[in-house]
Amino acid sequence: MRLWHFWLNSLIFSSQYNPPNFIEWLMLILAVLLLGVWGITQQLPYIFLCLSYAIGASISILVREAIAPSPQTRVSRLTALLLLLVSLYGFADFL
């Protein structure tokens, strides 16, 4: 029980310390989970929601890096652009 309490306190602290980063990670985790569900069920709403989360997270990362650059700005921007391009290609492929 102590481990769960520590984990919950760490989660709350990270959400209060850097809310945009916390939301980006949450969106990316949900995207990965939905991608796994889509891999099992092969139903289109799961992949569309997964791609939407990925696009939202990558745009959020790009905006955050434009406003307040971090020490690893180049890597963050490159990764976010790559994720955005793959997600947009996924949407175009299904349409």
Rank of each mutant, 00 (worst) to 15 (best):
M1W: 10
M1S: 10
R2T: 15
R2S: 14
R2M: 13
R2D: 15
R2V: 12
L3N: 12
L3W: 13
W4F: 13
W4S: 15
H5W: 11
H5K: 15
F6G: 06
W7F: 13
W7M: 14
L8K: 07
L8Y: 10
L8F: 11
L8T: 09
L8M: 13
N9M: 08
N9S: 11
S10Q: 14
L11K: 01
L11Y: 09
I12N: 12
I12G: 04
I12E: 13
I12D: 13
F13Y: 12
F13A: 14
F13H: 11
S14Y: 05
S15A: 15
S15T: 13
S15R: 05
S15K: 01
Q16H: 13
Q16P: 01
Q16R: 14
Y17I: 06
N18R: 10
P19W: 09
P20I: 04
P20C: 06
P20V: 05
N21Q: 12
N21E: 09
F22L: 05
I23F: 15
I23C: 06
I23Q: 06
E24W: 02
M27S: 10
M27I: 03
L28P: 01
L28E: 11
L28Y: 03
L30W: 06
L30M: 12
A31L: 01
A31C: 15
V32M: 14
V32G: 09
L33I: 07
L33N: 06
L35S: 15
G36A: 12
G36V: 06
G36T: 00
G36S: 07
V37W: 10
I40H: 06
I40P: 03
Q42L: 08
Q43M: 09
L44E: 08
P45V: 02
P45D: 00
P45N: 02
P45T: 00
P45A: 01
P45R: 01
Y46N: 02
Y46C: 10
Y46L: 12
I47V: 09
I47W: 03
F48E: 03
L51K: 01
L51V: 02
Y53S: 01
A54E: 09
A54V: 06
I55Q: 00
I55R: 01
I55H: 00
G56Y: 03
G56H: 04
S60C: 10
S60R: 10
S60T: 14
S60F: 08
S60Q: 08
I61G: 03
I61N: 03
I61F: 03
V63H: 00
R64A: 09
R64E: 02
R64D: 04
A66P: 00
A66Y: 11
A68S: 14
A68T: 15
P69Y: 07
S70M: 10
S70T: 12
P71W: 08
P71F: 09
Q72T: 10
T73P: 02
T73D: 05
T73L: 09
S76F: 12
R77F: 09
R77E: 12
R77M: 15
A80Q: 01
A80I: 05
A80V: 03
L82S: 14
L82D: 08
L82H: 05
L83G: 07
L83V: 12
L83D: 05
L83N: 07
L84P: 04
L84V: 02
L84M: 13
V86F: 15
S87R: 03
S87N: 04
S87W: 00
L88N: 06
Y89S: 07
Y89C: 02
F91R: 00
F91Y: 13
D93I: 05
D93P: 00
D93A: 11
D93N: 11
F94W: 07
F94I: 11
F94Q: 09
